[in-house]
Write a protein that binds this DNA or RNA. Structure first.
Length: 221
DNA sequence: TCCCAGGCAGGGC
DNA sequence: GCCCTGCATGGG
């Protein structure tokens, strides 16, 4: 399968997604933590509440009341962890960069990645999502949808790093394509994999758009 | 009622 | 390295 082909099919099917939906890069990073194991609609509510309290900047969040932040992010689930983690992120930016998100994200990406990974609540996927959407680096994040998606192309034996390397090798070195493909795979997953999230042939089923089925036929056998 | 949603950390093996 | 569990709320 050629990933570019799949990308083009998905783009035709769903259109551009314009990820990441955030007004600032700090908001993007906070959103990346809040969206773990929850729906984006819940995150939107939390983001709105944080904004209303003027907490969506490093200094304000770092100096915020922990219980207040917990209340703001409650409906995203795991709210005690998440409140602590976004406050720690804010604190890290204030302590190390005078609260400058720009200075933080401008670091060499390998260095930035390990620094992100050292933060509580920032695992491989969250770090890579931040690298792509906030730091604008050519890094392709592998989330649960992308793993399911990949299994259908016979890539089931690759681990996170292997899968990531595979995508990065096949894809054009184009930020827009990276950002859109990740979003499009999620869109596909949300629309067509809900009823059978673990079904390895879900997007080959009747519920799939026909043109998408065509796109993946070559390697599905 | 049960299952899932754009994971992560910490433990065991 | 892989697998398990706790973390918690809200929607279908």
């Amino acid at each position: 399968m050629e990933i570019v082909k799949v990308y083009e099919r998905l783009l035709t099917e769903f259109g551009r997604q314009f990820w990441w939906p955030a007004e600032t890069r700090f908001e993007m990073m906070v959103g990346a933590i809040l969206t773990q194991r929850t729906t984006w609609s819940a995150v939107e509510v939390a983001i709105r509440k944080l904004k209303r309290k003027k907490l969506l900047n490093p200094h304000a969040l770092a100096n915020s009341n922990p219980q207040l932040v917990e209340a703001m992010v409650r409906q995203t689930g795991f709210y005690r962890q998440k409140a602590r983690r976004i406050r720690k992120l804010a604190n890290h930016l204030v302590e190390g960069y005078g609260g400058s998100v720009d200075r933080f994200l401008r670091k060499p990406w390998q260095e930035l990645r390990s620094e992100l990974r050292s933060l509580e609540g920032v695992g491989r996927e969250t770090a890579d999502v931040i690298l792509l959407y906030a730091a604008n680096q050519l890094v392709f994040p592998i989330d649960a949808y992308t793993q399911r998606f990949s299994r259908r192309f016979g890539l089931g034996d690759l681990d996170y790093e292997g899968l990531k390397a595979h995508f990065e090798e096949q894809m054009p070195k184009d930020l827009q394509v990276y950002k859109e493909l990740h979003a499009l795979i999620d869109e596909l997953g949300k629309k067509y994999c809900k009823k059978a999230p673990e079904c390895p042939s879900c997007i080959l089923s009747d519920t799939c758009p026909k043109n998408l089925t065509d796109a993946i036929r070559p390697i599905s056998t």
